[in-house]
Design a protein around this nucleic acid. Structure first.
Length: 424
DNA sequence: AGTCCACAGGAAGGGCAGGCGA
DNA sequence: TCGCCTGCCCTTCCTGTGGACT
């Protein structure tokens, strides 16, 4: 006898199993979705052309920077040591792309010329990879083919291993250190002092540094000895304007999309939105890629301006959710406290946050941290752009941070749901 | 002018985990 | 196994701050 709401579905590959009516409906809708997806004409031809890891054959509106950097690195081809160089510019202005692009060109030309040139790239914002002195040295040694444990060795030994590995062969090494300001902020500038003096300890090899930073004031705060040797040459990367971003997007879109799928005005809209974000080409590419993905997901035939608007919101939500998911539990508890308080008041003070935070800790069984630590967690959330803070003085009633949420209502709603799920 | 408040934030160090070499 | 090293998270202690109040 058949049970109510359950029936027997027979023999897919000789298996017999029972499924409920509800499950059958879900399976059918999934089947329909896959079918619809298969029947829809593809939108993307080469999606990766819209990702930041893609290196295009040409880079519009950066001819000057490419020429300047090439001129600085050219002495390598005649066995000389090029000057150390510093690249400045806002995010998404092409610093990383161009340094890697010129680096790989240099590597291939030097190979043809019988020169041994190696370009090593490291991003100091890669957490747990290259964000401390030890890890940076270990990572660079690994790039040179020498594995060093994650921890355990004295730092001077890690330096020694790196130097020895470097000096094993006669070669010129171009060391690209991206987000160099993040490294110095965390570990101090001693590491840069050591790196800028690296050639004094090498017999066979030569090393040149390319430092990359978004922070224009970074170099001013360095020790003068490091400043003079690190920035022997400097290149500035100005932000792209709307028209330049359009050129970049048109070129990438022709590689990424099937011809004719982009509605009139899509590229212009992505470029305009990214131009508002300080001319960030990365943002423009993300917008176009996500708009395409949303159209593909809806099985739409064309990418429209509506998709770009949706992409804009999706990127913001995803960014915030990813950051919050990656935070330690205590930081999430502090954020949860701020969200809760902001439902009552638009502006909150540190003291209120700490009082409410203690209640939340008791409720969810977390350890209560000190005010000092919570103050740091609030500062970190501010740094991520999730909250906005401003230090004010209330005269006799002390100094405090005024805290507000810098997010739209839809993001706050999703964030609250996410934090509830994590805590329960 | 001096005092006071409620913090901000720097410095030092403790405790723990992960890992190495002897 | 033990001593040593590093990174990380955290606490404790301390000084600094700036405007209202006395």
């Amino acid at each position: 006898m058949r049970k109510k709401g359950v029936h027997v579905k027979e023999n897919i590959n000789n298996f017999t199993f029972k499924i409920s009516k509800e499950t059958e409906v879900t399976m059918n809708s999934a089947k329909n979705l896959f079918q619809k997806f298969l029947e829809t004409k593809p939108i993307f031809k080469r999606r990766e052309a819209l990702t930041i890891s893609f290196t295009p054959q040409s880079i519009p509106h950066r001819e000057k920077q490419i020429n300047d950097l090439s001129r600085i690195l050219a002495p390598t081809l005649k066995g000389g040591r090029p000057s150390n160089v510093f690249l400045y510019g806002r995010p998404g202005t092409g610093k990383t792309l161009i340094s890697r692009f010129v680096g790989s060109e240099l590597e291939s030309i030097s190979k043809n010329n019988g020169q041994n040139v190696k370009v090593l790239y490291v991003n100091c914002k890669m957490k747990r990879v290259a964000d401390t002195e030890y890890r940076l040295m270990a990572y660079l040694s690994k790039l040179l083919g020498k594995d060093i444990p994650f921890t355990g060795l004295p730092t001077d030994q890690v330096y020694r291993i790196f130097f020895e590995t470097l000096d094993e062969n006669k070669q010129t090494v171009i060391l690209i250190i991206d987000e160099i300001d993040a490294l110095v902020e965390k570990t101090g500038d001693e590491i840069l002092y050591n790196l800028t003096r690296i050639n004094q300890d090498l017999k066979n090899s030569r090393v040149s540094l390319i430092g990359i930073t978004n922070s224009l004031g970074f170099i001013e705060n360095l020790d003068p000895r490091i400043r003079s040797s690190l920035s022997e040459e400097e290149l500035i990367f100005p932000p792209y304007n709307g028209l330049q971003l359009q050129d970049i997007l048109k070129e990438r879109a022709s590689m990424a999309f099937v011809p004719g799928v982009l509605e009139q005005g899509v590229i212009e809209k992505c470029a305009a939105l990214a131009a508002q974000e300080h001319g960030d080409a990365r943002r423009a590419l993300d917008l176009l890629r996500v708009a395409g993905e949303l159209a593909e997901r809806n099985a739409d035939k064309k990418v429209t301006i509506k998709h770009v608007d949706e992409a804009q919101e999706k990127i913001d939500i995803d960014r915030v959710l990813e950051i919050v998911k990656a935070q330690p539990r205590q930081s999430q508890a502090v954020l949860f406290t701020i969200i809760k308080l902001s439902e009552r008041n638009k502006e909150i003070q540190t003291g209120e946050v700490y009082d409410e935070y203690q209640e939340i800790c008791k409720k969810y069984g977390f350890k209560i941290l000190t005010t000092r630590r919570v103050s740091d967690l609030i500062a970190e959330l501010d740094l991520f752009g999730i909250i906005n803070t401003k230090i004010i003085s209330k005269g006799r009633y002390g100094r405090t941070r005024i805290i507000s949420l810098g997010l739209s209502n839809s993001i706050i709603k999703k964030l609250k749901k996410l934090l509830y799920e994590i805590f329960i």
